[in-house]
Amino acid sequence: MPMDLEERDEFRAVCRDFFAKRAPVDRLRRYLVEGSDFDDDLWSALVEQGWALLAVPENLDGGGGGLADLVVVAEEAGRALQGAPLVTTIAGTFVLARYGVLESHPEVLESIVAGATVTYPMGFDPTSLGERTNSAHLVADARPGSYLLVPSDSGLDLVLVDAMTKTSAVETMDLVRSFSDVGFDSSVVVASIDDRQAAIDLFTTAVVMQAAESLGVARAAFDMTLAYSKERKQFDRTIGSFQAIKHRLADMYIELQCATAAVAGAAESIDNGSEVLESIHTAKSVGGRAASWVTSQAQQVHGGIGFTWEHVLHLYIRRAKANELLLGSPAWHERALVEALAGEPVS
């Protein structure tokens, strides 16, 4: 059942606390040494405590969260910039639940309860959907045992990635999330939703969850920067006392507040089924640009230290930019917003 505002605030505090304990900033250092990988320990903990099941309906013993609740988790996961595939699993499960797949395919639900992850390609947008295929580009965190949602003009295919599935890792600028191109055999398709709208619903859900994650990423970079500006001294003053820096921080904060309002608005729209496209395009335009811009500003305020490999800041810059470009760039969403409002293709 959707939470009221107070419950949601408490829920946020619980999320933040969990990630602060289980995925502290120091844990990110591994990505500076080893590159992107899947954080198994963290994922086990998330599964054990039920975080992975938040989008499973209550009648199936899940959390039954509306998207307005789920974006809170996505934002906090983004803030921790952790390496477990929580955001994709929640978004994917949300769509599976909406189309009744968890009920029609109990084995899928069972596997998810046992810790299977759900994922989808992140390089698509509704205009790039084509005929049903046996491949998916830029899939996040795919590995044997993962469920992969493959969108096409015909709808969604649910694929169980197995040992025979061809996954070729793609090196990306995101050092925390792993990406691969996946080619599969038709025999591993475990369910199909023959409704183009399902592919659109995956897209809209994934965009809002991504925007929430980006917001968390930007907030973390902002918090780091604000703290640094109060501690770093030059010319016998903290750098946060220079008006150029103050105004930059004020602008970063303004953008965060705008992105917050946009994400919350979009999540509510999906929950209510009203103005969905307008709202998700708004969330990606505002939120996608905000996260990249805020993390860039964060680097400028950090000076030389922020340009080093050892400082975790670049992990946030990388994620913000990757998210900005995946699932439709802001420019794509801006044109799509105008099309949605004009009620017709514009060019």
Partner: peptide, 19 residues
């Protein structure tokens, strides 16, 4: 509106207005 740059910019401003 049939110009890409026009629809993009208008979309960005509309998103800003909605926010």
């Amino acid at each position: 509106l049939s110009g890409d740059d026009v629809s993009r910019r208008l979309g960005e401003l509309t998103a800003r207005a909605r926010v």
